[in-house]
Design a protein around this nucleic acid. Sequence first.
DNA 1: TGGTTTTAGTTGCATATGCAACATATAGGG
DNA 2: CCCTATATGTTGCATATGCAACTAAAACCA
Lengths: 160, 160
Amino acid sequence: MPVQQQRLEPVSSSPSDPIQRAWIALGRISQSVQMHVAAALKQAKLPDLQWYTVLWELERAGRPTRPKDLAVPLFILPYQLSRLVDRMEKEGLIVRIDCEEDKRGHLLEPTDKGFAMRKQMWAVYGPAMQQAMRRIADPEALKLAELLYRLGGVDNPHGS
Amino acid sequence: MPVQQQRLEPVSSSPSDPIQRAWIALGRISQSVQMHVAAALKQAKLPDLQWYTVLWELERAGRPTRPKDLAVPLFILPYQLSRLVDRMEKEGLIVRIDCEEDKRGHLLEPTDKGFAMRKQMWAVYGPAMQQAMRRIADPEALKLAELLYRLGGVDNPHGS
DNA sequence: TGGTTTTAGTTGCATATGCAACATATAGGG
DNA sequence: CCCTATATGTTGCATATGCAACTAAAACCA
């Protein structure tokens, strides 16, 4: 056992009440609004939000993109993305094309059907998001985003 | 088709930029902090956060509780809870006991092992939450919780 | 009371997921 | 150049999940 200890502090302190309240609120409310949008998409017989995000990232990139470059913005593990791409390719929304520079991987690109699907999904997604967020006004929304990004340690989220 | 229209407005408007920013921040940051805590529990070879929440709600209730009364605070569907209870019962953390008043259902109660497990999980969960939330101070956390609850339409969350 | 509707909870089945192991290609170092 | 280490994706298998169909008890109601 250590003979000397610099300070006497609790080894691992319990979160303060405000922190716990924020934590709980974050879990509950994010789940609630996510479910609202997910339900809207399902009711419209459209694919999952994740599919939208893939299509959107590919469209935003504006060129064929490597899975590994998608994995980061999507917060997704490689094997998860691999199967997600499988399903989306099977539905004809994206295609895997050979990558000349690195024969291990490939490039992903939306098909025309993929572009169309993203638009179609946005027609449901947008209004559902609006509805889910209807209780806060724009200035509060900005404040909320700012606090969240500070919490997440993101410095400059305005660019993307 | 309608002969007269009161106003000329887009049928379903796109969310404003601040709303979209808040939406995206909410999704990303909540996922990020949740994953942080989930990883800490997994690394400690402890069960999922959901198990904690079940144990905690049962402990908080202070008496045997019906699944249907848990489903609401847990934001969980009946069939999900049914299987969650299966697994937790198999691990000896909770028990199903017969309900005299309503023979359809039963009551859930933590075992001693269940109580112990909740404490043990909190020893990891608490510090992990602290760590995940370390970037915001208490006053900001309160502001965040307030904004989130307003967004979710919850009036008085201070009680629970 | 007898019949219908609701509520509480479970389950069969198809699909999705996590994890660890795998295949293959590139990069790095003597 | 060869040998090892690392990076990029994929996959077998066990487990978890969503959905719809199901059982059974309670509530309603005529």
